[in-house]
Design a protein around this nucleic acid. Structure first.
Lengths: 243, 243
DNA sequence: GACACGCATTGACTAACGTCAAATTTTGTT
DNA sequence: AACAAAATTTGACGTTAGTCAATGCGTGTC
């Protein structure tokens, strides 16, 4: 179900509720007007690219609704899902700042609304309000921290532990705690993407899922996951301590 | 040989040759004076910490000479070497910007001179010259790009390929091409660190080194490496393509 | 509704890698 | 120079995870 990208008119920065929770919250009243003038909003269908590796950055993107996947492909075509972007997140500013082409693909994981702010406007705003740049800097530093944490996990955890950890992270956004202490989770991504996020093959993920079910830790049905005790997942993360 | 950190007086931002190649190159003349006033320079011995995880960021650090290793430890004490910092690199600004404690250790890998610029000065400079913040942002974005590339490699390459790749990267800075086409390389880090950089055990690295030697690709003696044909390392990186 | 396609699961097998332990070398200290 | 400590190498072994291949499942298309 891949609709083609369509221009939407429903989103306007001045009234946008996401703006207050985003990097753009540092802007003053007339700066927001400038932002609104340099902006266009688009609707995307599932799987549709927002931007692609190699394209030059003609502006930045701000997620208004939905989830956007940030991926990188290597020379052999392996796709790695690096990050999930949510409403309020700003994407693609690296390319605008450096003048280099985009290093990643950004793709809507479901119906999504994403606004585009053209480079000129971004540069004017950065110039007018230095806090915007500092805000981007804080955000980028947080992403770097996140990426470095992932590197540590890739270096020290088993695939099973990494999958448990990933499920816990996805729980934060997509999970729901039911009355009797069990939790449920609707996965935003396929098994293949799940696998690429932890640096494993999709067959391996299938097998780990099988073992989670045998061990009573998590039960999968399509993209729905039922987790009787969240704490059991936490236990999975620390390497086996003997004693 | 761990000397204790000592205050040095040899380094002054106004005359510092590294400054022109660093983020601070965007500063104007009197801003450099402000920088020089908020700065103190220190000498470090091999293995000595510049700052440590958990400490609060009381300023940023600028490498004047030597190499500084950026590491992160996990809960079980595993150390992962995330990055090598070189003269001109600025460290530790994340902690200053966010107010959070340092998330990494920074440690001199050999004799090194590192200047400390106190938080107040950094904030004044960021305030006076917005280009400094943008410069930090560009640098951080580049680090993020680098970390994401590593994630892709961790997800898709074998340890052997990752080691070959790492050697090529280290060649850029520590390598020397001799007349007859062979190259030599003096490693700045131990085998353990080499292992942590590619997410493998040190025993595994030892064995890969053994195989590199059997295969005539690289010969190791302590921290010296001789590489007859650099191209042979490049070949190692791409997964076996069946022909 | 039948079909095709991509995704997911499972099995059999193999290769890569980690673990534990011991021997050896290197490095730093006294 | 002698010693102690740490790093490195090597071996034997077990486990994990990747590969190849076949089958099943689900979704969207015609």
């Amino acid at each position: 179900m891949v609709k083609s990208r369509s221009r939407g008119s429903n989103f306007d920065c001045v009234t946008c509720i996401m703006r207050k929770r985003s990097d753009w919250s540092v802007l003053g009243r007339d700066e927001v007007t400038l932002l609104a003038n340099g902006q266009s909003s688009f609707s995307y269908g599932s799987g549709e690219p927002v931007y692609s590796m190699g394209e030059s950055g003609d502006g930045v993107y701000c997620v208004c609704s939905g989830t956007v996947a940030i991926r990188r492909l290597d020379a052999e075509g392996n796709s790695v899902l690096l990050q999930l972007a949510y409403p309020g997140d700003t994407l693609g500013y690296e390319a605008v700042l450096t003048g280099e082409p985009h290093r990643c693909n950004a793709e809507a994981l479901g119906p999504a609304n994403v606004c585009h702010i053209k480079s000129l406007t971004v540069k004017e705003l950065l110039d007018k309000n230095p806090n915007l740049g500092l805000q981007f800097l804080r955000r980028t530093a947080a992403s770097l921290d996140d990426a470095q944490d992932k590197l540590v996990h890739h270096a020290t955890l088993s695939n099973r532990a990494k999958l448990a950890h990933l499920l816990l992270i996805l729980m934060d956004r997509y999970g729901r705690r039911t009355a009797d202490g069990t939790s449920t989770l609707h996965l935003p991504v396929s098994r293949r993407d799940l696998a690429s996020m932890i640096g494993a093959r999709h067959e391996t993920v299938s097998r780990i899922i099988g073992r989670f079910e045998s061990d009573g830790i998590a039960y999968f049905s399509g993209r729905s996951v039922r987790i009787p005790q969240v704490n059991a997942l936490v236990e999975e993360i620390r390497p086996q301590l003997v004693g």
